[in-house]
Structure formats: structure tokens, C-alpha cells
């Protein structure tokens, strides 16, 4: 019902016929997010620009959130911000209730499954968001899970979501998973190794600076949430505001 964009009949105005309007319950609020898992850490970053159409609504509207659990899980649902905010708030309370019911904090794998059921539960009126969570798994390794709007999900090493996902993801394939990189001597594909936290953060900043250059819905400032066994650390990095 909502997959087709509504196109106003071209003749409506000139013919003096009543203009047909239909309420569209969705919009796109821009922004982009990115998560990378390391050996014993994970980062989830998002720009803080909030847009509708060509308007910048806010230059600082954070969309990466820490869930109320320990070990920590960070989450962002990028796309239609009303759905994203609602999903994150509901998830926060579900995660809290999980800890009441089971007397322990939720694991990131259980959290991922919970999100899938929440998203699929609205399969026929979906949350219009690309969801990513990051944290540590039960062995203490960095973990990233990403979801489509109706709940398909997968654990990954890295994932970009939102407006500039298609700009950032190939860059990540190359720089995180070393796709299309070959050893000069042997000609073998370059062996995949974990990035250090410093390298990862540099990569995140580069990815967002570049996405800001090429995408109008990305910019203003970057919020990076870093999850280690010590907890969540937040770092900010200015992006271009044009």
C-alpha cells in the first residue's frame, strides 16, 4: 500500500478537478550510521544532522543510543526518525524488562533476536528504518548486528546504514574486510585481520567526512559510541555544515 510513491496526476491542476491528496505516514529524515566490530571493542557512529527534504531541521539531533544494560549495547535506527525513535525507546524498555524477568542483562545475540521480532511484528506497517546494534558478545569480542526494516538480520564485521550507506559500504569492504586487496608478492588475497581501535576511529571519521562531501543529508557533526569492556565512551567530531 505504501511502497508506491504517490504521484499527483499532472492534469489535476489545469483541469480544475479537485486535487487528490493522500496522507503518507512516512518521511525520510536523512542521516547515516556506521558500525565496526573489533577484536574486543565495537563502535557505532552516526551523524547528528536531521533533515526533511532539503531542510536541515537540526544540526544536533543524536540518533545513537546506549541501551540500559550492562555489558552495554548501543543502537541506532536510521531512516524515518519517528519510527527510529519509537523503536529505540520501546527496545530500551524491553531490554530493561528482560533484566527484570531473567535477573541478568540481555546478551547482544538475544537483543538482536528481540529486535527482529519487534520489527517483524510490524511487517505490514513497517518501521521504516535501517537498524544497527553494536556491543560485545558473550566471549567479549566486538559484535555488530544489522537489520532491514522488517527484521531480517545478520551478524557482521561492519555495516553502514542510512542515507550514505551506499557511499560508505564499498569503502568499508575494502578497508575493513580487505576486499580487492592482494599481496604484491604472492598475488593472494590480503589476509583479514582485526583493526585496532585507533585505526577504526580514523576509518569512521574518514568515512563520514567523505560521505558529508558527497551527500546532502549527511553532515554537521559525528557522534561515535565506543563499546569496550570498560563501558561506553562517546566521542564527537565536527563535520562540514554545508
Amino acid at each position: 500500500m505504501y511502497s508506491e510513491p504517490y504521484i499527483e496526476p499532472a492534469s489535476a491542476h489545469s483541469a480544475g478537478a479537485p486535487i487528490e491528496h493522500r496522507f503518507n505516514p512516512y518521511s525520510d529524515n536523512g542521516g547515516t550510521i556506521l558500525a565496526i566490530a573489533g577484536s574486543d571493542f565495537a563502535v557505532l557512529a552516526g551523524d547528528t544532522r536531521h533533515t526533511t527534504g532539503y531542510s536541515i531541521n537540526s544540526r544536533f539531533q543524536p540518533k545513537v543510543h546506549a541501551l540500559p544494560c550492562d555489558p552495554p549495547i548501543v543502537v541506532s535506527a536510521n531512516g524515518f526518525s519517528a519510527d527510529g525513535d519509537t523503536l529505540v525507546r520501546r527496545l530500551g524498555q524491553r531490554v530493561q524488562w528482560y533484566s527484570y524477568a531473567h535477573n541478568k542483562a540481555i546478551s547482544i545475540s538475544a537483543c538482536a533476536r528481540l529486535i527482529q521480532t519487534m520489527l517483524y511484528g510490524k511487517r505490514f506497517f513497517p518501521y521504516y528504518v535501517h537498524t544497527i546494534i553494536a556491543g560485545l558478545d558473550e566471549e567479549g569480542r566486538g559484535a555488530v548486528y544489522s537489520f532491514d526494516p522488517v527484521g531480517s538480520y545478520e551478524r557482521e564485521q561492519c555495516r553502514a546504514g542510512g542515507a550514505a550507506a551506499s557511499l560508505i559500504m564499498p569503502f568499508l569492504d575494502n578497508q575493513v574486510n580487505f576486499k580487492n586487496q592482494y599481496d604484491a608478492q604472492t598475488g593472494e588475497p590480503k589476509a583479514v585481520t582485526f583493526l585496532s581501535l585507533e585505526e577504526t576511529i580514523k576509518l569512521v571519521k574518514d568515512a563520514f567526512s567523505s560521505a558529508t562531501e558527497r551527500h546532502i543529508h549527511v553532515g554537521d557533526s559525528l557522534e561515535i559510541m565506543i563499546v569496550t569492556k570498560e563501558g561506553v565512551k562517546v566521542e564527537y567530531f565536527p563535520l562540514k555544515r554545508d
Binding site: Y26, S27, N29, H50, N57, S58, F80, S81, A82, D85
Partner: peptide
């Protein structure tokens, strides 16, 4: 009307 929310020093 969509439930979209944000805050800023000037709106």
C-alpha cells in the same frame, strides 16, 4: 503530524 521530533536552538 508524522510524529517526527527534533530540537534545536531555533526552529
Amino acid at each position: 503530524l508524522l510524529g517526527v521530533t527534533y530540537s534545536s536552538p531555533s526552529i
